[in-house]
Design a binder for these strands. Structure first.
Lengths: 234, 234
DNA sequence: ACGACGGTTTAGACTAGTCTAAAACAATAA
DNA sequence: TTATTGTTTTAGACTAGTCTAAACCGTCGT
C-alpha cells in the first residue's frame, strides 16, 4: 500500500519526534534521509494528503496516530531483524543496522511473527532500543538521558546506543561500552569532551557527538525497556 | 547498481531460457511478470544497452554472460532464502516462494554467506531446484523431464516441482508428491490427464498443467542436483 | 502469392520521486 | 521598524517504469 519511500519518511519523523518532540522540521528530515529540503516538502505534502501527518506551514510536521502506527510497524520490523541477525546469524552488534534497513520494508507479517517467535518475543534489540509490540501500541516515554548531559561523579548504566553510525558503534564495542555497561563520569572538558570509567576501571574520552548517542539511566534503577537486553558482539 | 525491476526481468528471462532455450519472446516475459508487451519491449531495450541481453528485432532476447551472472545471483538468493525459511523458520514447502521473492533483491553478500553457512551450503532448495554456487558458475544442464512427457508404466522419481503456484504446491504436498517421491504412471488420458501411483500405493490424477510442473528422472539414476534434497513440509 | 492474424514495436502519455533555482516567509539584530 | 539571515516552499525540469493505442512485421493458410 505505502511505498518504501513513504515508510522511510514516517520512520525518521517518528525517530526525530521521539528525540526532540514535534514539530519535526523539514530540514531535520532532509538531513536524516539525505534528500534536499525541497524534496522533503513535496513528500510531506503527499503524506498529509494520505492522513499520515499534520502540517503547519513553515513550522514543521507531526505524525497522526495512523502515521505513528506505520512508523511503529517499520520500527518493529527493523528491531526484530536486528535482534534476529545478532542472535541467529552471528552478526555483531555493530553490523546489524544496514541489513535491517534493507529488509525492514520487505518482510511479511508471517515472517515477522516467526522471527518474533524464534526469539521469544524480545522487548529490546541489540542496541537496547525497545521493540514495539505486535499490536503496535505506542511506546512508553523514554526515561533515559543522553550521557552528554551528565556531570562528573554521576554513575550510570548504558541503556541504549544509537544504531546510526557504524564506525562509532565499533569504537564503543571495542571500548566495552554496550547496553548494560555501568559508567562513572570522571571528567567533563569545556570543549565538549566527556571522560568515563567503565566497570573494569578503564577510562575512555568521548566527544559530545558520541556521548549524545549513548542514552543512560541512573545506577540501580531497575525499570526501563532494557531489562532483558542481550548483547552479542564480535 | 541494477534496479530490482531489472533483476526481475533477468531472472525470468533466465528461467524461461532454461526451460525452452533462447530466444525468449517478449510475450513470454510479459506473461511471467504480468506486464504489457509494450512495457517489456521498452525494458529489453534498456537491458540491451546495459549489455545484459542481446536482441534480434521481432525475434526475442537472449542473456549475455553478464546477464546470466546477474540472474544466477538473484536465483541463488531466492533459493537460499527458500531453503533457509523452510529449515530455520518452519515454513512449509509451499509457503516459501513469495517471501523469497520479496527478499531476494535486498539481502547483502554478507547475509548470503551467513545463510549459506547456516545451512551447510545446500545444493538444492526445498522444491528440488539447484542453488547456484557462490561463484555463480553456470548450472549444469537440466537432465530431468516433465512428468507430462511420460507414458503408462514408466517409474520415475520426482526431482523438482515448480515453485510458481501456491495452490498447486499445496495440493501436491497433500498428495505426498514432493522431491524424492517415486511415482509410477498408471494412466494417460487423451484429454491431458495423467494418473500416477505414489510409493504408498495411492493414485492421483493430475491435469497436464500440473504434470508439466513436475520434473522427474528415471528410478535408480543417482546423479542430478537433488541428491541432497531435504523436504520440509507442514 | 497474398491476405489475415498474432505477436512486436513505436508513439505518446502518465505517475512517483527526485533535483535545482528562485521566491516567500519567520525570526532576529540593528 | 526594517534589514539580514536562514529555512521553507514553489516552480519547473528530469528519470525510471509503466500504460494504451496504433503501426508494424512475419508467418501460415488458402
Amino acid at each position: 500500500m505505502l511505498s518504501d519511500v513513504m515508510e522511510d519518511y514516517l520512520k525518521v519523523i517518528y525517530e526525530i519526534q521521539a528525540r526532540s518532540g514535534p514539530p519535526v522540521s523539514t530540514s531535520a528530515v532532509a538531513e536524516a534521509l539525505d534528500k534536499t529540503p525541497a524534496t522533503v516538502t513535496s513528500m510531506l505534502g503527499t503524506l498529509e494528503e494520505r492522513g499520515l501527518v499534520t502540517r503547519e506551514k513553515y513550522k514543521g510536521v507531526e505524525l497522526t496516530p495512523e502515521g505513528e502506527t506505520v512508523a511503529l510497524e517499520v520500527l518493529r520490523h527493523h528491531r526484530l531483524l536486528e535482534a534476529y541477525l545478532a542472535e541467529q546469524l552471528d552478526y555483531s552488534w555493530s553490523e546489524v543496522h544496514d541489513e535491517a534497513d534493507a529488509l525492514e520494508h520487505h518482510i511479511s507479517e508471517e515472517f515477522e511473527r516467526r522471527v518474533a517467535a524464534a526469539l521469544g518475543d524480545p522487548a529490546v534489540d541489540p542496541h537496547g532500543d525497545p521493540i514495539p509490540s505486535a499490536d503496535l501500541a505506542p511506546l512508553d516515554e523514554d526515561e533515559t538521558t543522553p550521557l552528554s548531559t551528565h556531570d562528573v561523579g554521576d554513575r550510570v548504566v548504558v541503556s541504549r546506543v544509537s544504531d546510526r553510525d557504524r564506525e562509532e558503534l565499533e569504537y564503543l564495542a571495542d571500548a566495552g561500552i554496550t547496553p548494560g555497561t555501568t559508567l562513572e563520569v570522571v571528567d567533563v572538558a569545556p570543549f565538549g569532551m566527556v571522560t568515563v570509567r567503565t566497570g573494569e576501571g578503564a577510562e575512555q574520552s568521548l566527544p559530545d557527538t558520541v556521548a549524545d548517542a549513548i542514552r543512560v539511566r541512573p545506577v540501580d534503577e531497575r525499570t526501563g525497556p532494557d531489562d532483558r537486553a542481550e548483547v552479542t558482539d564480535a
